[in-house]
Nucleic acid binder design. Structure first.
Lengths: 110, 110
DNA sequence: TATTTATACCTTATAATACAAGGTATTGTA
DNA sequence: TACAATACCTTGTATTATAAGGTATAAATA
């Protein structure tokens, strides 16, 4: 099933933070991790994942360093900061609050 | 609890359609209906509800007519169309699909 | 009675978002 | 050797929800 990408708005950072909370990763791998963890529902395009990571880093929620992968290739490895973990916890609470209200709204009166 | 208004993005039309599916209503009343039904979680500002209704009407998902209220005041009464009902059903399915994936994402590996 | 609050409608301008579309370069595979 | 996959990135854009402003009437209250 396909769904309107607009639904993601406002939730993307939470998705990315949550994926990164499972362990450090580089951008491209994170994209795949999100895809797997969501059972192929969330497919974040590259034009989305890179700017998002840059924004999160700028805000101090994640940090990165250039490292050499097994293949000898330079990759940028991201990890979540303690500030990022706190934000993620807040976002999780926000999500459950929001989704509960949506459930109330969508339950038919009938 | 307050939550980031950005979370609403992409879900607003669904919220409004769902509220209107409980019966015809005018804009101002709809705002209150949404507030009540969501147990005070969703508080849609007027600068949001009016343009949203205009958009929904333009798309043929709702329709409206000027009527006279009990107080003798002219109000614009909105009701959901059959096209709107179909869209709402789609949106409900989209929501449950989306929220299931979010749940998968937010569940910690630990 | 005068004033304030609630009701009821609306528009314009704006910040933020996610993303399409474009690009570069390397590594692995057929 | 060609092609796909990996890995990174930027620019420009459409859409969104909303803040901030406005108008006018009805109800409540001081």
């Amino acid at each position: 099933m396909k769904f309107n990408r607009e639904l993601m708005k406002g939730h993307l950072k939470t998705i990315v933070l949550s994926a990164l909370s499972d362990g450090p990763c580089h951008a491209y791998g994170l994209k795949k991790r999100i895809q797997e963890k969501s059972l192929d529902v969330f497919s974040i395009p590259e034009g989305t994942i890179y700017p998002t990571l840059h924004k999160l880093e700028k805000d101090g929620l994640i940090e990165s360093q250039e490292v050499e992968s097994q293949s000898g290739r330079e990759i940028r490895n991201y990890s979540i900061t303690s500030k990022g973990i706190k934000t993620l916890e807040d976002n999780r609470r926000e999500w459950s609050f929001f989704s509960r209200a949506m459930k109330l709204m969508l339950e038919s009166e009938l």
